[in-house]
Nucleic acid binder design. Sequence first.
DNA 1: GGGAGATCATAAGCATGTCTATGATCGACA
DNA 2: TGTCGATCATAGACATGCTTATGATCTCCC
Lengths: 155, 155
Amino acid sequence: MTFPSSPVGFLLHDAARLMRRRFEQRAAALGFTRAQWQVLLHLSRNEGIHQAGLADILEVEPISLVRILDKLQARGLVERRQDAGDRRCWRLHLTADAHPSLALLQDIGEDTRAEALSGFSDAERDTLVGTLSRLKSNLVDACTKPAIDDEAQHG
Amino acid sequence: MTFPSSPVGFLLHDAARLMRRRFEQRAAALGFTRAQWQVLLHLSRNEGIHQAGLADILEVEPISLVRILDKLQARGLVERRQDAGDRRCWRLHLTADAHPSLALLQDIGEDTRAEALSGFSDAERDTLVGTLSRLKSNLVDACTKPAIDDEAQHG
DNA sequence: GGGAGATCATAAGCATGTCTATGATCGACA
DNA sequence: TGTCGATCATAGACATGCTTATGATCTCCC
């Protein structure tokens, strides 16, 4: 098949979608999604962060986080506490209830990762992680630039 | 940061999402999304395929394709023609109008890919493509298996 | 020939992600 | 001090992806 140069974008998207699908085939029994897991995990490592800060870590728009946090809060896994000095901010905290669920989700994540990386050597896995990190970093930079169609910015 | 083993899934998902975001920053001016581009592209290489076949190529559920095709058809870029021998099927065809748009989207795709792969050697890019292909293949296989939590299927 | 089960397209409902927009609050500067 | 622009959280609208369900049609096998 003579595909236009290398279909990196399609491959990336397909692999990510399939990995999400596989994760959620398992996590559905617990009532969690991949995105909820990611939020819980980063929250566990950044207790007390506010929503804009978490959005920045996750490289998503703040609005994308709101509904996820709404659901987690409604389930009693996340608390929004008013910031003492800035009434615009909520400080985010995991509740005690969140930790057992997070542990289960980590196990499911491990299983899914093992399936995805089946047949990979440690070196191959590390190379992949390094390559994806660079690619992500390139895109984070690119997304802040104007989306012109390849002209007028060569200065 | 001591992240749980290698966060391949998160990296993959983040990179794919950022690449989609960047692509759509450019393609929004034309009124197209990444998914619509992917459908048009695969259709151009598989004229006359039916929806289930295209869904299979794209590794998505058939229902995921319906609304995308609806929109492309409403814009006059795709035709659904009744199959001669099977009244359940639609055969899918690009219209003449689709080809100029597809060419523009290909250019945008090239620009986006170039940004994402900035600083990568050809060999690195090829390694990434190969690795992602294997990963995708692993996941396609895995997704057909029952989603049990890692037990009872060792036979 | 006729019925059972597979297959095709599609609907309903939900989750996530984006854009743009809005109201509240903060901070900085005149 | 008072106003103006930045920032925080969030609403609305849209596109995609999934699971589950449904109606039409086909196929196979008795």
